[in-house]
Simulated assay, not measured.
Amino acid sequence: MKNLSFILLFLLIFTSCKDQDALEKANSFYNSGEYKKAIKFYNEHLEMKPSHEIATYNRGRAYEELGEFQKAIVDYKKVIDINPRNENAYLSLGKDYYRQKDFENAAFQFEKAYKLNTNSSQAATLLARAYHKSGKVENAMEYYDIAINNDNKNAEAYLYRGALKIHLNQSGGCNDIQMAKNIGYDGAEDLYNKYCN
């Protein structure tokens, strides 16, 4: 009986070490941009811990980087099943809808992320962009304002708020684009030269 306990303990430790090793390898490959290899080791890890939230999310991100969007969506939805408060999973789902030009559903997912973290400038910016694209300009302006209030270095929010102000013939658009330019946002200088010079 004593030997059986020892064998079970040894197997448990061995399995745990192997599982941790797979996760470390997966994360290492993910961080170096080797997404196919990362997926292989995330799969290995998830065979032992199928409800591991971070591994599932990272595997979804790896699928997304490879353009395997349907597999990524399955993982993001699984993450939400595991933890309905995972802001990143909602943001990633929203980005997929946005990529598909389904701006209503993108806004729905971004709003869920924003409600989980009202201090998130990123969630507010993405929500504003989805509203902007779906023609809900008042909502878009509100969330661009929130994004900038949450992070006054959010160049993307300044740029798109400025563009929206110019489109609506409101004052301050060029000031916003200038701010985006000063922060160093790509494309801000071209936009400034086109509309503000």
Rank of each mutant, 00 (worst) to 15 (best):
K153A: 05
Q122M: 10
Y192E: 05
N175A: 15
L46Q: 03
I183E: 06
R61V: 15
R61K: 14
D186A: 07
F69H: 07
Y195D: 10
S171P: 12
K78R: 09
Y160S: 02
E47V: 09
R85Q: 14
Q100D: 02
T15N: 15
D190A: 11
G184H: 04
A72Q: 04
E104W: 00
A155P: 02
K95D: 07
A72N: 06
F103L: 04
F6N: 08
N169R: 15
D81M: 05
A106N: 05
Y143C: 14
I148A: 01
Y30K: 08
F103I: 02
Y98P: 00
G67N: 07
A106C: 07
A113D: 12
Q178I: 02
E34S: 14
M1P: 14
K194E: 15
N152A: 09
A157M: 11
Q100G: 00
K77S: 06
N58P: 09
Y63P: 07
A106W: 02
N27Y: 06
N150H: 02
L191H: 03
D102L: 01
A55V: 05
R129Q: 07
G173Q: 04
K78I: 00
Y160T: 01
C174T: 03
N86G: 05
I7V: 08
Y35H: 07
S134V: 00
N83R: 09
K112H: 14
N105Q: 05
Q170S: 09
K2I: 14
K78C: 00
A147P: 09
N117M: 14
S120D: 10
E47Y: 03
R161Q: 12
L159M: 12
K136M: 12
A130M: 01
Y90G: 08
Y192F: 15
L8Y: 03
K36F: 04
M141W: 06
A188C: 08
E53D: 06
I183A: 06
P84K: 14
V137E: 15
I146N: 09
N169Q: 15
L91F: 11
R59P: 10
Y143L: 13
F69L: 10
N169I: 13
L191F: 12
C174I: 03
D81F: 02
I54P: 00
A180S: 04
H52S: 10
S5M: 11
L8E: 04
S28P: 03
G94T: 02
D176G: 04
D145T: 10
S92M: 10
M141G: 08
K40I: 09
Q70V: 07
L66W: 05
V74Y: 11
G184W: 08
K36M: 06
S92R: 09
E64L: 12
D21N: 13
Y114N: 13
N119T: 14
L126E: 10
M48W: 06
S51F: 06
Q109M: 15
K49Q: 04
N58V: 08
I166G: 07
K101T: 01
F110I: 04
E68C: 01
G173C: 07
F29T: 05
L46V: 08
D21Q: 12
Q70Y: 13
K181E: 02
L191C: 03
N83P: 10
Y160D: 08
Y192A: 03
A55M: 08
L91N: 14
S121M: 04
Y97K: 00
